[in-house]
Design a protein around this nucleic acid. Structure first.
Lengths: 112, 112
DNA sequence: CAACTATATGCGTATATGCTCATATAAAGT
DNA sequence: ACTTTATATGAGCATATACGCATATAGTTG
């Protein structure tokens, strides 16, 4: 997007959609819970504190976006992070937010 | 988020909010238009094809998120990208999408 | 100060989407 | 086949937000 030629409308929508998928706290919780390896739905329900229905829905959304991958094993369904760029993406955003908060804290300390 | 300890609820909300800001096509168009330097609202209206009111609102949103910075010069207001991580962020997402589309294309070609 | 220009904003509406409850599906065990 | 367990999904509700229209504000020029 910065190194490349300007995106056409279609590509732009895809980028927006991808950001939208990552713009839900519960989905971020799920992603975070999966950073240390695959887990089944029940485990994710426990870890995130969400309801089973809601967790299942969000897992659907993340899988449809090719961010997670599904693996069925008997009654359980195991999910894992399928998109290797996700951790980097999250790191970049976290870094930006940390910097922003630090700057705000500094400004507050200086002028406040 | 991956290298760091798990985020607390508050940080998680901030990350989600930041992704949400980037999840709108018009805002991505504005960001894209600003990759080659600052522009005023009128120029951005022309470049993006949006209405003045809508462009102004989205610029507000982006500025509130500290993604853009505002500079007033007479009647005009100039905006520019203030967050240096934005281009990288967009590149990461674009790269992921390109890979995904390529993989889908390959699968389609292989299996018919 | 009146007219004009550039930008911002209040308000109403339409749409999208997250959440819950109940129920469906699928797989396993008895 | 029936029951139990794990996961998915349909329906309805509540909320968020993008957009358009009209208007307000700020700054400039005559």
């Amino acid at each position: 997007m910065s190194k490349h030629r300007p995106l056409n409308e279609e590509a732009l929508l895809l980028v927006a959609q991808r950001f939208a998928v990552l713009a839900e706290p519960m989905r971020l919780r799920l992603i975070q819970s999966l950073f240390d390896g695959e887990k089944n739905v029940g485990e994710l329900v426990t870890l995130t504190g969400g309801t089973q229905a809601n967790v299942s829905r969000h897992l659907q959304t993340l899988t449809a976006a090719h961010i997670l991958a599904r693996r069925k094993e008997g009654l359980q369904v195991y999910y894992k992070i399928a998109d290797p760029t996700i951790p980097r993406l999250c790191d970049v955003v976290c870094g930006a937010i940390e910097k922003q908060l630090a700057r705000q804290a500094a400004t507050f300390a200086a002028t406040g």
